[in-house]
Design a protein around this nucleic acid. Structure first.
Lengths: 224, 224
DNA sequence: GATATAAATGAATGGCATTCATTTATTGGT
DNA sequence: ACCAATAAATGAATGCCATTCATTTATATC
C-alpha cells in the first residue's frame, strides 16, 4: 500500500527528512551535548535517545557521525583528557609536575568513572588529545633524567593508581562500616574508627596523597 | 474469557509452578552458575535470562533469591574476595605478605574487571568475605608496626593501584601504538619502542611490579 | 484440617542501542 | 544548466535486556 501522505505538520516546524542546508550534527556538537547531559543527569541519563533529543534530532541521525555509543564515550574521554593539567612538566621540578598531573587527572575522572573501563583499554591512536597528554608526560619524564625504558611502565603504574583512586572518590562515606559484622573484624573496625578521629582532609584525599607520594619517591629514585 | 486449560505437557516433564519439594535455587547455586557462565561466555554472556537457563529455571524465579542483577554481581565479587591470598600475613615478613596479597588480588580481578565499579563503591557490610580479607590485611599491617591511623589509607591506596592494574592486564598489547599520529608524539613513541626492546616479562607485569615495589617501600617506612 | 508462605511459572512492560528503507537538499562532474 | 551521487536527516522496526506481576501449588505451621 502507498505510504499515507503525511499531514503537513503545521505546528512546531518539524524538520523534514533529507539533507539540510548545513549539517546539524558533528562530533564536536555531540561531544558537548553529551557532556552537558552527563553533567545534568549523570551517565545513566546518557542514552542515545536522550542525546538525540537534546540535539533536536532523531536518534538514528547520530549514527551518521558516530559508530556506536562507545564511540560517544570515546569522544567524551578525549575531551576530558585535554582538561588534565600537564602544564607543569618542563616548568616545575619533576616531582611537583607529577603531583599536579596526577591530582588533576584523578579529579577530572572521578566525575566520570564510567569512562574508566573505556580508557583503560582504549588504543591511544583513537584519542588524539589523550595521546597528547601522554606525550607531554613522557617528555617531562625524559627531561627529568628518567631512563627511557622505564618511562612507560612508570606512567602506566601511576595511571593505574589514578584510575583506582578516581573510583574511591565516588565511594560512599560509610563504605567501611561493617555493620553487625563489626565484632568479627576487630582490627579492621579499630583501624577504621582510628582514621575517623583524624579530621584533616577527606579520607579519599589522604589515601591518594599517601600512595602518590610513595610512588613519586620511589620513581624519583630511578632518575639518572 | 477463561484462561485456556494448558495442555498437560507430555514431553520434557516440565516443572509446574508452585512450591517444589525442596527449593531449586539458593544464593550459592546462583553464584556458582554465574561464575560458570562468566567463565564460558564472559560478562556479556551473564544475563538474567542466561543465568536462569543454566539453572533450569524461569528468569523471574531468580528474583526470589536476589534483588537485582547487581546483587548477583555482589555475590560473585564476595566469592572472588575469598580467593585472594592473604595467607602470608602474620607468617612471612610484612613486605612479602603485601606482595603476595597484591599480586593475587590483581590476578583474581583482572579476569573480572566488570566487577571493579561494583566493588570500589560497595559497602563492606554487604560482603562478608571481602570484609574478612580486609580484616586479615589490617591485622597484618598492625602487627607489622603500622601506625593505626594510617592503615586504612594505605590499604585503600594499594587497592586503588590493584584495581587500576587489573584493567591494565586486559588492555590490548598494541594499546600504545600511536598509528599515523606517531610523528606528532616523538617522545612517547620513542619510549614505547624502547620498552618493547626489553623482553623480560609482560609489560603489564613490569609496570605492576614497579608501582607495587614503590608503594611497599614507601609504606614500609611508615612502620614504627 | 485450615491457613499462610515460599518458590516457582509465564506473560507483560518499558527501556535500550542499533538497523534500515526512505527522503531530499546540496555538491561536483560533464 | 542539468544530472548523478552523496550526505544527512526521518521514523519505523528489531531484538535484547532487567524487572514486575498475577497466578499456581507444595510444604510448613498453627
Amino acid at each position: 500500500m502507498p505510504a499515507p501522505t503525511p499531514a503537513p505538520s503545521a505546528l512546531p516546524a518539524r524538520r523534514r527528512a533529507g539533507r539540510p542546508t548545513a549539517a546539524i550534527l558533528d562530533q564536536d556538537g555531540i561531544t558537548t551535548a553529551a557532556l552537558e547531559l552527563i553533567s545534568n543527569k549523570g551517565y545513566d541519563g546518557l542514552t542515545m535517545a536522550a542525546l538525540a533529543r537534546s540535539l533536536g534530532v532523531a536518534p538514528s541521525a547520530l549514527y551518521n557521525h558516530v559508530a556506536s555509543k562507545d564511540d560517544v564515550l570515546l569522544l567524551v574521554e578525549d575531551h576530558l583528557a585535554a582538561m588534565v593539567d600537564v602544564s607543569a612538566f618542563g616548568v616545575e621540578p619533576w616531582d611537583a609536575a607529577v603531583r599536579r598531573w596526577a591530582w588533576s587527572y584523578r579529579d577530572v575522572f572521578s566525575e566520570h568513572t564510567p569512562l574508566i573501563p573505556v580508557i583503560a583499554v582504549l588504543p591511544v591512536a583513537n584519542a588524539p588529545k589523550t595521546l597528547a597528554m601522554y606525550e607531554a608526560v613522557t617528555a617531562g619524564f625524559r627531561d627529568a633524567g628518567f631512563p627511557e625504558e622505564k618511562i612507560i611502565s612508570a606512567i602506566v603504574a601511576l595511571e593505574a593508581f589514578v584510575f583506582g583512586a578516581a573510583y574511591d572518590v565516588t565511594a560512599p562515606e560509610d563504605i567501611f562500616d561493617a555493620g553487625n559484622l563489626a565484632e568479627q573484624v576487630p582490627n579492621f573496625t579499630a583501624a577504621v574508627d582510628r582514621l575517623a578521629l583524624e579530621r584533616h582532609a577527606r579520607p579519599t584525599d589522604v589515601a591518594f596523597s599517601l600512595g602518590l607520594e610513595a610512588l613519586i619517591t620511589g620513581f624519583g629514585a630511578l632518575r639518572g
